[in-house]
């Protein structure tokens, strides 16, 4: 019995090596295919790709991963990178690639269709969708009157152990927004108080769940985490709600998910078509179907019932929040990293 099992394991292993070798040989790229490294939510990009292929006939090979891991991978790949396009969930990875001179500017005609603040100054990347930093709170633990107008308030001793935070996915940009309002020293003091009084979670989803279950009263997360949980559990069952910081406050930050073309691409025309499609009306609508994000293209309405974008935000460009080397330095100085 075990001998047979062992033999079948060996045979299975040999067969599967053969299958892998054969499979890779038949995977040769045909004309009209681009490779997109995707760190954005998978469903968002898959919906975009489906519409893109339907409308242009160009096929897309998606490589899914965490945005920063993909950026590190592209840096290690250097001149031989197989990627044509990189779609990142956060702006720092694309800003880093830009600083290393790895990106090709988007066509002027494409960049002109969205507000200039939603793209890098040299158009090497453009925004594709946007999300908002919010404070989610447990309705049984926080009264509406207690909700703070500023993100600077939630780190005071009065909030000891009542605010959850996550140091990834939007947090570096958040720090840069505080730097913009309070300066470097102010931001450092804010981070130190946050470390002292806040509760660190390993992911936005974990922090969101913690608020919903009443484990912590509030948490700093991206807006769509609440909508995602509400979709899963039913909105009427939600024990938590979203609080927006006052317009102009560092906490009312709007973050971009940017997209850019690699300089090493061998098919820049196809890659340019993909970027143009991403910010077209059809592309924007496809991407907004699953997650509660905002469009970058004026005139497209979000699929979820979201607070209007002109009632939130602070005057800071995506390029400024994306240069997160300072945020990294501050986090290390505050002992968070």
């Amino acid at each position: 019995m075990t001998l047979i099992a062992r033999r079948s394991l060996v045979a299975g292993g040999a067969a599967s090596i053969a299958a892998l070798a054969f499979g890779s040989a038949s995977r040769a790229q045909t004309g009209g295919t681009i490779t997109v490294y995707n760190g954005q939510h998978r469903q968002t990009t898959e919906a975009l790709v489906n519409e893109f292929t339907k409308s242009t006939g160009i096929k897309v090979t998606l490589r899914q991963g965490e945005s920063s891991q993909l950026a590190n991978q592209i840096i290690e790949e250097g001149a031989r990178s197989p990627a044509d396009v990189f779609y990142s969930e956060q702006s720092p990875p694309l800003v880093a690639l830009d600083e290393k001179g790895l990106l090709l500017p988007a066509d002027d005609a494409t960049a002109a269709q969205i507000p200039a603040a939603y793209a890098s100054p040299n158009k090497t990347w453009i925004g594709a969708t946007m999300r908002v930093r919010v404070l989610v709170y447990n309705k049984a633990m926080i009264k509406p009157g207690e909700l703070p107008p500023s993100i600077l308030d939630v780190v005071t001793p009065a909030w000891k152990d009542r605010v959850g935070y996550v140091i990834r996915d939007g947090f570096q940009e958040q720090i840069m927004a505080v730097v913009k309002v309070k300066g470097r020293d102010g931001a450092l003091a804010w981070l130190k108080s946050l470390k002292q009084n806040g509760r660190l979670y390993n992911g936005n989803g974990a922090a969101m769940n913690a608020v919903e279950s009443g484990e912590v009263a509030t948490a700093l997360v991206n807006n769509y985490y609440w909508y995602g949980l509400a979709k899963e559990r039913g909105e009427q069952n939600m024990k938590s709600a979203i609080h927006f910081f006052q317009k102009g406050d560092a906490g009312a930050l709007v973050n971009l998910s940017p997209i850019g073309i690699l300089k090493t691409t061998k098919q820049p025309e196809l890659a340019q078509k993909f970027l143009a499609f991403a910010i077209s009306e059809a592309g924007q609508k496809a991407m907004l179907a699953t997650y509660a994000e905002y469009p970058v293209r004026p005139g497209v309405s979000p699929a979820f019932n979201l607070k209007p974008i002109d009632e939130i935000g602070i005057p800071i460009t995506a390029h400024e929040v994306g240069g997160a080397a300072l945020a990294y330095e501050l986090q290390r100085e505050a002992g968070i990293l």
Binding site: E66, S68, Q69, A71, N72, I75, P93, A96, L97, K100, I167, R168, Q172, N202, A324, A325, Y328, Q331, L337
Partner: peptide, 13 residues
């Protein structure tokens, strides 16, 4: 976990 975080936070590793 810190190594993963470092790779997430910066691009000179």
């Amino acid at each position: 976990t810190a190594i993963f975080q470092q790779y997430e936070m910066q691009f000179d590793n």
